[in-house]
Amino acid sequence: MDFAAILSNAIGELISPTTAAYALAALGLAVHFGYSGLLNFGQAGFMAVGAYGFAVSTLTFNAPFFVALLIAVVAAALFALILGIPTLRLRADYLAIVTIAAAEIVRYLVTTNGWTAVTGSANGLAAFEGGFFEMNPFPPGSYPLGMNNRDFFIRIVGWALVIVAGILVWLLMRSPWGRVLKGIREDENAVRSLGKNVYAYKMQALIIGGVLGALAGMIFTLPRGAIQPANYGTELTFFLWTCLLLGGMATVLGPVIGAMMFWVVLSLTQGVLSGLIESGTITWLTTIQAGQLRFILVGVALMLLMIFRPQGVFGNKKELAFA
């Protein structure tokens, strides 16, 4: 087994743009669930809205990069608004049902054959990332970990976005605004009785988390240069929830570290398992089965975490001790 390769793969995952996208989307979930108590099971839908909003406005309307970015963000905010208006007055569980359905609706809409000219149907869209990489200030050449200048650029942008978003969320949550949100998470009627417009706060939180999801969707698709509806299924939402729960719900660092752990563990188990299979130590598994097995392992790890450390890695034990 080539441990050096396995390790360098794992380190590659640690800083990959996909990990950054997961971190950003999970941070959005932290704003939704961790701080505001909004059960959003449709974060994949927000990512899809962001990714498609960007790709469609670039390809169909020839919008420059920053206009396309703005359209994607506005589209996600509108999506949050549409979801929120009927459901935020209801109990939290209804939002969960509506968001999971809405995310699926988005995925089916972009898969519709009638709109192939715009959304590319099941094949998706490609070649919309040109505007982004034109702005690359890094000259071609070789960069650490075998990256080229494109890889390096998208990683810098992705993680810079994660850091900026993290700082913004942290600033917001230590403010009185964040305090009202946390109060709503605990008991929204009590907050109402103190003269706060609970509905408006919940809507603001839903939009902020949703926009983070949309930005994540763009970071997710830009390095691939392609977008496919199959990538935005419900399992993506559940992976994001896994990241959030791994790291800790009501923290800023939690979802970021959670996303890193998620991908590093997946990469390590993949490397070790396929190494063992190739060397003939394991004969009862194929490489493809091993790929499935590591997701089972992630599920088992999540269960163990919930039982023995329910607050996640960075969560505050006290915040859960009485729940």
């Binding site: 305090r179 109060g183 605990e186 008991d187 009590a190 009785s193 103190l194």
Partner: peptide
């Protein structure tokens, strides 16, 4: 106030007050 007391359990007493 409410008959079934509503305090924000996972906020501190002071934060409850400030709210």
């Amino acid at each position: 106030t409410f008959q079934l007391t509503k305090v924000m359990g996972k906020l501190t007493v002071l934060e409850n007050m400030r709210l």
